[in-house]
């Protein structure tokens, strides 16, 4: 096994952390949507707002952050795919 490769190790760690955040906001948070609805944000009940808009921004930021980190990793380890 070539698991000692640092580029892959860091990629995997980053993926795991972001995946965990994704699970947390998608499944754990939505389980409590009813409770979140007690709060109001921009005129929306919070649980509803997260499902209709908030989560979508979180998803977009996860992908944005992943891309940025991967660009840095690519540069750090000199990985060029073409």
């Amino acid at each position: 096994m070539t698991n000692d490769n640092a580029y892959w190790r860091e990629t995997r760690r980053l993926t795991l952390v972001l995946f965990a955040i994704w699970v947390l906001v998608t499944f754990v948070m939505n389980w409590f949507a009813r409770e979140l609805n007690e709060l109001v944000i921009f005129g929306f009940p919070l649980g509803f707002y997260m499902g209709a808009q908030g989560l979508l921004f979180v998803y977009l930021s996860i992908i944005w952050f992943y891309n940025r980190s991967m660009r840095k990793l690519d540069a750090k380890y000199g990985v060029h795919d073409d």
């Binding site: 972001l18 995946f19 939505n30 509803f48 499902g51 989560l55 979508l56 998803y59 992908i63």
Partner: peptide
């Protein structure tokens, strides 16, 4: 109503999985 938001969440959340787990590896 609210229950329909599952479609919005599911159909956008899936792209996080595409980004993290699949797209770069398929392209490589």
């Amino acid at each position: 109503g609210f229950q329909g938001l599952a479609y919005i969440i599911g159909w956008t959340g899936g792209f996080v999985l595409v980004a993290l787990l699949l797209a770069p590896y398929l392209r490589r």
